[in-house]
Design a protein around this nucleic acid. Structure first.
Lengths: 194, 194
DNA sequence: CAGTAACCGGAATTCCGGTTACGGTTCGCC
DNA sequence: GGCGAACCGTAACCGGAATTCCGGTTACTG
């Protein structure tokens, strides 16, 4: 592949990501091409048809999410790992906006769908949460399943946007996890911030 | 309008709601007509074109949400009101599935969009939360804004589904609010459950 | 119970966005 | 610097979903 074609490929994927992040997966191909500053045909040559464009982006998101979970699972299993994971996930949705939401509900090719399902964020987060709770810095009166649903719920576009308005990814993760920390721990953190 | 036409209108809206709840807003008109047991033209006569079908459903959702908030604001402002609101909201998303999520991100007519924005769930929930916190049964180390984002985040389709799997709307609301109650209060509730 | 206006279902049509074909342009190796 | 292959943008094509049209049917009124 010639270097200009490669550059176009990158431009197109970036443009598509940007557009789909705000409009959802149904962004039009002509718009994507325009946003990338190329013609429609170039999209077909450099990335493929509409489905393949979506698939490319989907793979990006799924890959990044999976990697974040892998990393967290490889860590020491403490609360800090959970915080880092939350932070990374919020970083991802900040970039991909509506894409990750659409991926879960939309119609995807069976193959990609199963790949997505394999990540199974709720379950994996739940396990990580349970593991971290054993360190004693998380409240023990809340079930990991409910905690996972709440924390990952904060990735919903409307919540994520509201939270992002208040600070950087680190601050967001902090705010999201706070309700689950033991009082002693939140006190410590609060003091540390000052 | 003749009585059979009125009956059809109801059937169509219900069918569209059911279909869109699981498939998203892009459900096809022919499928909707079939699900309702009528011809396509009947959809146009009784409800209108595709956009108007969506608008009708959207109005339902927005109306129910707004009513829920109105009711909560008219209440005594305690934690129980918050719990009831959360319960109602989860009931709504259980019925409308992907519709409410799509409404926020999708392309809507400016008019309806602003109507939706007028409900402004995050802000209204935040105020209710702040008010309820004054009663002393909610933790005071969590900001209302963050709490609102987390609690309303639980309405995200993936979280809502996971939570619903564990029990009825009341149990869901309970689980969602638990992290925000003071310890004394959660203890009391936990004991009451047994 | 008959007349009529409103209603119905399904076929025909329009419309719109994805896809492809084609003539001009640019990269990169010599 | 020139040549060929690979690349580009535009405009025409195509399929499928939205919308409309039409002949038959059904609910209300007197």
């Amino acid at each position: 592949m010639r270097s200009d074609a490669l550059a176009n490929q990158r431009k197109i994927v970036e443009a598509a990501t940007r557009l789909m992040a705000e409009q959802g997966l149904e962004a039009e191909l002509t718009d994507i091409a325009q946003e990338a500053g190329v013609g429609v045909a170039t999209v077909y040559r450099c990335v493929g048809n509409r489905d393949q464009v979506i698939e490319t982006i989907a793979r990006d998101v799924v890959g990044q999410m999976a990697a974040s979970f892998d990393e967290a699972e490889a860590g020491d299993g403490g609360v800090d790992g959970l915080r880092a994971l939350t932070e990374r996930l919020h970083g991802i949705v900040a970039t991909y906006g509506w894409v990750h939401a659409a991926l879960i509900g939309g119609r995807l090719h069976a193959e990609l769908r199963s790949e997505m399902r394999a990540v199974d964020p709720l379950r994996r987060f739940e396990r990580l949460y349970a593991r971290a709770r054993a360190t004693g810095r998380l409240r023990d009166d809340i079930e990991p399943e409910a905690a996972a649903a709440l924390i990952l719920g904060s990735l919903a576009p409307w919540s994520a946007r509201a939270l992002q308005a208040r600070g950087d990814a680190r601050a967001v993760a902090e705010a999201v996890l706070a309700p689950f920390l033991t009082h002693a721990d939140t006190d410590r953190d609060t003091e540390a911030d000052r």
